[in-house]
Design a binder for these strands. Structure first.
Lengths: 134, 134
DNA sequence: CGTATGAGTTACGTCAACGTAAATTCCCAT
DNA sequence: ATGGGAATTTACGTTGACGTAACTCATACG
C-alpha cells in the first residue's frame, strides 16, 4: 500500500499543472475514470498514473485518441484476449514510428546545430564591425 | 547552374505530394513566394528548398509559424542584423527543446519496448492455453 | 441564515491547418 | 466559336483540444 489516497480536482490541477476543464475533458474522452462521491470527482492513484502517461504522450505529439489506445495496452490486466493481439500490433507500429521520428529528430538537430554555427560566425563578424564603428 | 527551371503548382503537388490548397495556404502564410506569371504561380528552386524544410519541420511537430521562424534563419543571406540575434535565441531554445524531446522519446521507446515484452509473454501463455485446449 | 467559495453542467468560442464547394478566368484543341 | 481542363479567388466547413462564459448546486463559516 503505497499512497492510495484519492485527490480532488484542485489537487490534481496543482499537482499536474492542468486546468479542471482538461481533467473533465479527459474523463469525457474516457482517458480518466475518477470515482464519483456524490457530486464530486475523486481521482485515484490509477488516474494519476494515467494522467502522467497522457501528458508525456502529448509531449510526443500523440493525439488523445492514440494515447487512449496506448493506455489500454498499459492497463490491460487481463481479459480482452482477442483485442490484445490487435493492440499489440498498434503498439509495434507506434514504436517503429517513434523510432523513425527519433532518428529524423536527431538528424534535424545536427543540421540545426550546423546552421547555427553559421549564425555564430555572423554574430562574431557583426561584433567586429560594431567595435570598429566606435 | 543546377536545375533552376520553375514549376507549376501541379508539378509541385506531384513532386511533394501535397494539394494545391496547401501550397496556396503556405503562400498566404508567407512560407513560400512563388512568382506570379500573370495569373499563375511559378515555383522556383528556392520555393522547393523551403517546401522540403517545411514538410520536414511538420514531421517534427513544429507549427507553421515556428517553421516560418526557422526558415527565416535558414534563408537569411544578409541584412536584418538586429533580428538575427533574436532569431538565433529562438533557434537555440528550439534546439534544446528538441534535444529534450528526443531524450524523452528515447526513454518512452524503452519503456514501451519493456511493456511489449509483457504482451509477448501474455500471448505466449495464451498460446499454451489454446494448445492445451485442443 | 446569508454568503462566499469551489465544484459541476451546458454550451458556445477559438486556433491551427487545411478541405471543399462555388463561381470565375484562361488557354487550347476541335 | 466553343467546350473542356487547369488554375484562381472567395468563403464557409471541419477536427482536435481545450478556453470561457453563464448558471446551478452544495457546503463551510462567521
Amino acid at each position: 500500500m503505497t499512497d492510495d489516497r484519492t485527490m480532488t480536482i484542485r489537487e490534481m490541477c496543482d499537482a499536474f499543472d492542468v486546468t479542471p476543464r482538461t481533467l473533465r475533458f479527459y474523463e469525457a474522452k474516457e482517458l480518466l475514470f475518477p470515482i464519483r462521491e456524490g457530486q464530486k470527482r475523486l481521482f485515484t492513484k490509477r488516474d494519476r498514473a494515467r494522467l502522467k502517461l497522457i501528458l508525456r504522450g502529448k509531449r510526443f505529439g500523440f493525439s488523445l485518441e492514440e494515447i487512449r489506445q496506448l493506455l489500454d495496452l498499459y492497463h490491460m490486466g487481463d481479459q480482452q484476449q482477442t483485442q490484445l493481439a490487435r493492440t499489440y500490433e498498434i503498439a509495434q507500429q507506434r514504436l517503429s514510428d517513434m523510432e523513425a521520428q527519433r532518428d529524423e529528430l536527431t538528424q534535424a538537430i545536427d543540421e540545426l546545430k550546423e546552421q547555427m554555427r553559421w549564425g555564430e560566425k555572423m554574430l562574431a563578424s557583426m561584433d567586429q564591425t560594431k567595435k570598429a564603428a566606435e
